[in-house]
């Protein structure tokens, strides 16, 4: 009879393995990268189907399920590198950082760092930035649309407040990720080739509406203002952040804030007593 050491070092026939031991060994075998690690004693199994065949079915289901979950979060990365290469990255990531809970939609944040520098991606310097941008879209898509601008409220002056959409965020990237993502998801090779990768740092406001995830490019000053506000700063602190963000003259900064913040769809200007009405609608 084939025997295997148990946790305490004693010999236990596979058919007598306690359930905890069986599940631990099988989980390890299903996630193993090498053939030796995938083996379980044949004596563990009975029936018409060889154990190795059954394990192969389960391994494919587990790893396929994890790849599928990551593919939902990172569609542009998937489209860019292709299904087979994405699966390779996803399987290696799944083995390195397996999920701890069944709601897979909240798993996989480490994938962004994991694929940075992944062998074979040297010609895609923007891969990490693209993955971060995918993750931002996914994060916002899972939020309930906020038509009431129920997020941060900031006193403007007098009796006016700025009311921001809940979940609003500022995303900055060293690459033109919006143009890259749009071209990749449209499968437009010409548009992708035309993207200027050296265009410098890009900033975007991102938020969720009933129509989907919204995106608005921001200048450096507007991005700094908005980021300061969303971090809990006062309007004065945010204004100071905007002024120190670039070398634009004060008047240019004011014009940028007027155009990119006060007139944006993600903000509403209203009186303290009537947040639902007012300018900026």
């Amino acid at each position: 009879m084939q025997r295997t050491p148990d946790i305490a070092g004693a010999q236990v026939a596979p058919a007598l393995w306690p359930l905890a031991m069986l599940q631990s060994r099988m989980a390890t075998a299903l996630m193993a990268a090498d053939d030796a690690g995938r083996e379980l004693p044949a004596a563990l199994f009975a029936g018409a189907m060889p154990g190795a065949e059954g394990l192969r079915v389960h391994r494919n289901t587990v790893l396929g399920g994890l790849s599928h979950a990551l593919r939902q979060t990172y569609p542009a990365v998937d489209q860019l590198v292709g299904e087979a290469f994405f699966d390779r990255m996803a399987v290696e990531f799944s083995r390195a950082q397996p999920p701890r809970a069944p709601q897979l939609g909240s798993w996989g944040h480490g994938f962004v760092a994991f694929i940075d520098g992944f062998p074979g991606t040297g010609n895609l310097p923007y891969l990490r930035a693209l993955a971060q941008f995918d993750a931002r879209f996914d994060e916002l898509a899972r939020r309930v649309p906020d038509d009431r601008h129920a997020g941060v409220a900031v006193p403007l002056h007098g009796e006016l407040n700025l009311y921001f959409t809940a979940g609003l965020l500022v995303h900055s990237s060293s690459y033109p990720v919006a143009a890259l993502r749009e071209a990749i998801l449209a499968d437009d090779a010409a548009a992708l080739a035309a993207v200027d990768l050296a265009c410098g740092e890009q900033h975007f406001a991102m938020w969720r509406t009933a129509e989907g995830v919204m995106l608005q490019p921001l200048g450096a000053a507007a991005a700094s203002y908005l980021r300061a506000v969303l971090d809990g700063g006062t309007s004065e602190q945010a204004l100071a952040a905007a002024l120190s963000a670039g070398d634009s003259p004060e008047g240019a900064v004011a014009a940028q804030l007027q155009q990119e913040i006060l007139q944006a769809r993600f903000v509403r200007v209203a009186t303290h007593n009537n947040a639902a009405t007012g300018a900026g609608q």
């Binding site: 359930l19 069986l22 599940q23 631990s24 099988m26 989980a27 390890t28 299903l30 996630m31 059954g54 389960h58 289901t61 587990v62 399920g65 994890l66 979950a69 397996p98 999920p99 701890r100 809970a101 069944p102 897979l104």
Partner: peptide, 13 residues
């Protein structure tokens, strides 16, 4: 098992 979730319906003895 092992603190990890495997997205499959694995069989019991």
């Amino acid at each position: 098992a092992n603190g990890h979730y495997l997205p499959d319906l694995l069989p019991l003895p």
